[in-house]
C-alpha cells in the first residue's frame, strides 16, 4: 500500500473516532437536556412541597413529596444498613487477610459478580424472603431489597479506596504493636473521604433504582412514618404518572423526572469531587 493511501486511512479513522467520541459524550447532554426541557414547565413549588391531595391522579392538587421522602428513606436506610455490613467485610478482606489468600480473592470475585446482577433479580429475591418472613410490601421491604443491591457497590468501592492507602501505614501500625483491629481503625480514619464517596454512590443508586423496589416497597400517597408502612418512591412515581392518560398527570411525571435527575446529578458530581480530592491528597 502506498504511503498516501495509508495516511488517508489514518485520517479517516481519526475522523470516525472523534465523531464517535462526540456522539458518546453528547448522549449525556441529550438525556439531561430532554428531561430539563420537558420538566421545567411543570416544575412548581407544590411538586416538591406537597404530598398528593384528593384527585391527584386525575390532575388535581398536590405534589410528589411522599415519593421524594420515601426514596430518601429507602436509600438512606439501605445505605446505613449496607455500611454496617460492608465496612467490616472490606476491612476483613483487605486488612486482616493476606492479599493473596483464597478467601479474599474469591470474595472479591463474588462481589464483582454480585455487582453485575440486575436489580430485578434482587427485587424478586427480596420479595421471596419477604413472603417467607411474612413481611408485606413496606419501607422495610424496600430497604432490604436496596441493601442487597448496594452492598456489592459499597464493598467494591471501599476495596478500591483501601487499596490506595500506602502499605507502609499498615506495617508501621502493626510494627508498633497495634492489633489488626487497631490498625484497621487507623486506616479507616485515613479513608474517610473515600467512605463518603462510597456512601454517595450507593445512595444515588438506591434513590434511582426502580426494579428492586417495585414489589418490595409498595406505593402510598402518605409520607411513611413507620417502617412497616408502604412507601412511594420517586422513580416508581414517575413510572406510574407517565402511564396516565391525563396530560396534567403526565406533566407531573416530567417534573418528577427532572427532580430525580437533579438529585442524582448533585450526588454524582459531589462524589466525583470528593474522589478526586482524595486522590490528590495521596
Amino acid at each position: 500500500m502506498g504511503i498516501k493511501k495509508r495516511k488517508t486511512e489514518e485520517t479517516i479513522v481519526k475522523i470516525l473516532m472523534i465523531s464517535a467520541c462526540v456522539i458518546v459524550g453528547s448522549s449525556l447532554f441529550l438525556i439531561v437536556g430532554t428531561i430539563v426541557v420537558k420538566g421545567i414547565p411543570y416544575l412548581t413549588w407544590d411538586m416538591v412541597s406537597k404530598a398528593p391531595q384528593g384527585g391527584f391522579y386525575i390532575g388535581k392538587e398536590g405534589g410528589v413529596l411522599n415519593a421524594i421522602i420515601g426514596s430518601l428513606y429507602v436509600a438512606g436506610g439501605a445505605t446505613v444498613l449496607g455500611l454496617i455490613i460492608s465496612i467490616p467485610i472490606s476491612v476483613y478482606l483487605n486488612i486482616y487477610l493476606k492479599s493473596g489468600s483464597l478467601l479474599s480473592k474469591s470474595a472479591k470475585l463474588a462481589y464483582d459478580v454480585l455487582f453485575g446482577i440486575p436489580s430485578i433479580v434482587y427485587g424478586a429475591f427480596a420479595f421471596s424472603i419477604m413472603i417467607w418472613l411474612g413481611v408485606r410490601a413496606s419501607l422495610l421491604g424496600g430497604v432490604i431489597a436496596v441493601t442487597l443491591l448496594i452492598i456489592p457497590i459499597l464493598v467494591r468501592t471501599l476495596d478500591e479506596v483501601i487499596a490506595t492507602v500506602p502499605r507502609e501505614l499498615k506495617h508501621a501500625a502493626l510494627s508498633l504493636g497495634a492489633t489488626r483491629w487497631e490498625t484497621a481503625k487507623v486506616i479507616l480514619r485515613q479513608i474517610k473521604p473515600g467512605i463518603y464517596t462510597a456512601v454517595l454512590l450507593s445512595f444515588g443508586r438506591g434513590v434511582g433504582d426502580v426494579a428492586s423496589v417495585l414489589f418490595t416497597a409498595g406505593f402510598s400517597d402518605n409520607i411513611p412514618i413507620y417502617i412497616d408502612e408502604p412507601a412511594a418512591t420517586l422513580p416508581l412515581a414517575i413510572f406510574f404518572q407517565l402511564s396516565s392518560p391525563i396530560p396534567e398527570v403526565q406533566g407531573r411525571a416530567y417534573a418528577s423526572a427532572l427532580i430525580l435527575t437533579l438529585i442524582i446529578l448533585v450526588i454524582v458530581i459531589v462524589s466525583h469531587f470528593l474522589a478526586t480530592k482524595h486522590k490528590h491528597k495521596l
Binding site: G208, V210, P235, F239
Partner: peptide, 21 residues
C-alpha cells in the same frame, strides 16, 4: 467523568428520554 455521570443516571430517566426522544 461524563461516563461516570451517565452511569449514575437512573434507568427510569433513560426510559423517559427514550419515550420523548
Amino acid at each position: 467523568p461524563l461516563m461516570n455521570i451517565l452511569a449514575g443516571i437512573p434507568p427510569v430517566i433513560y426510559g423517559v428520554w427514550g419515550i420523548f426522544f
